[in-house]
């Protein structure tokens, strides 16, 4: 095991890539996507073995892609926080509170006012997180655990014992639509992922974000305003959560008390499988998160097809998480002594 330390420098890994397509490779995350794509292929093969060729029906792809669309939107926004070196555990509950408020207010106030209030509440929660973490330097995991508790209380107060139902006809019909095997919502989510990937790879602010997450002190010395970037990352995640909450209602027609925690877990598990890290910023590519969610979604659909107890999803996810982080470490990630 000890020889592994010699492979930790990124230089070691990037010997091969030629200068040609360097930009494209950078966009796809360079070698960091190798592992998650391999894992996705692996899941694809396992699915074929377990479920047979039936698994590759247009229907199943439609189910898979629409199931992961909302978490995908949420992850696309939340991953910017991870890049900037903050972990916001309250993004899932933000989706929950946004969904609850949108479903409760939408029928009375109309679509846009309801949606605006829902997004604003999510943004307000994110702003409080930013204030506590950036201004007062509270630990981000711990502070957002507090926010998570607050948001679950608000969700309970809004929904009470009678979850409202709000079917937005146009959005509901849209959420059921698909282009071949890909649901429309999924295609939009992929577009969002690609946009965010482009932003963090090519845009100056995106590069600064990654620098701020990678080494805060070095970034500060280089004149990067780390605090301001982190505030931006928090608010960006909050915005994404607010939008995801509206899409959630569009797709499912109503909220529930406990959608937050499972969404958080799903998204962060996907991002970590996709090469992001909870403990160091600056690494990972949103496209990796896309593949991570494809893996999680595929396992979920597989469980449905085979009528397997959902608990196995947790076992598989838990193992996948550990393996993913192990692969990340072997690839040059931090080694924990």
């Amino acid at each position: 095991m000890s020889t592994l330390t010699t492979h930790r420098t990124p230089v070691d890994l990037d010997i091969r890539p030629p200068k040609r397509f360097a930009k494209i490779r950078a966009f796809y995350g360079g070698s960091s996507l190798g592992a998650v794509v391999t894992a996705a292929l692996l899941v694809a093969v396992i699915s074929l073995i377990v479920a047979g060729p039936d698994f590759y029906s247009v229907d199943n792809f439609g189910i898979l892609t629409s199931y992961i669309a909302v978490p995908l939107v949420m992850s696309a926004f939340a991953c910017v926080g991870l890049l900037a070196g903050i972990v916001d555990l309250s993004v899932g509950p933000m989706v929950g509170v946004s969904a609850a408020i949108f479903a409760a207010l939408g029928p009375q106030l109309g679509f846009w006012p309801g949606a605006a209030i829902a997004v604003l509440v999510a943004l307000a929660a994110a702003a409080i997180n930013a204030l506590a973490v950036v201004r007062f330097r509270a630990d981000s995991i711990a502070a957002t655990v507090g926010m998570l508790t607050i948001l679950s209380g608000i969700t309970l107060a809004v929904i009470g014992s009678n979850p409202p139902t709000y079917i937005v006809d146009g959005l509901f019909a849209f959420s059921l639509g698909a282009l071949g095997p890909f649901s429309y919502l999924f295609l939009i989510a992929v577009a969002v992922i690609l946009a965010v990937a482009g932003f963090v790879t090519f845009h100056k602010v995106g590069r600064h974000l990654r620098a701020a997450g990678g080494d805060e002190n070095a970034a500060t010395r280089a004149g990067i305003k780390v605090g301001r970037l982190r505030v931006f990352a928090f608010l960006f995640g909050g915005l994404g959560a607010g939008i995801a909450g509206i899409l959630y209602i569009g797709q499912n027609g109503g909220p529930a008390l406990e959608i937050g925690p499972s969404l958080t877990f799903q998204s962060y598990a996907a991002l970590m499988i996709g090469g992001f890290s909870l403990v160091r910023g600056g690494v990972g590519n949103p496209i990796g998160g896309l593949f991570g969610l494809l893996i999680i979604g595929a396992v979920g659909v597989l469980l449905d097809l085979q009528q397997i107890n959902n608990h196995f999803l947790d076992v598989v996810l838990g193992s996948a998480l550990i393996v993913a982080v192990l692969v990340d470490r072997l690839r040059g990630g931090d080694r924990f002594e």
Binding site: R135, F136, A143, M147, I150
Partner: peptide, 26 residues
């Protein structure tokens, strides 16, 4: 206070304590 408000209070206390602690340490 009902269960919902209890959660809100507990979360708020946690965040405020953390912010205070972080500020103090800074």
């Amino acid at each position: 206070l009902d269960a919902a408000m209890q959660s809100v209070f507990q979360g708020a206390i946690l965040i405020i304590a953390l912010a205070g602690d972080g500020y103090l340490r800074k």
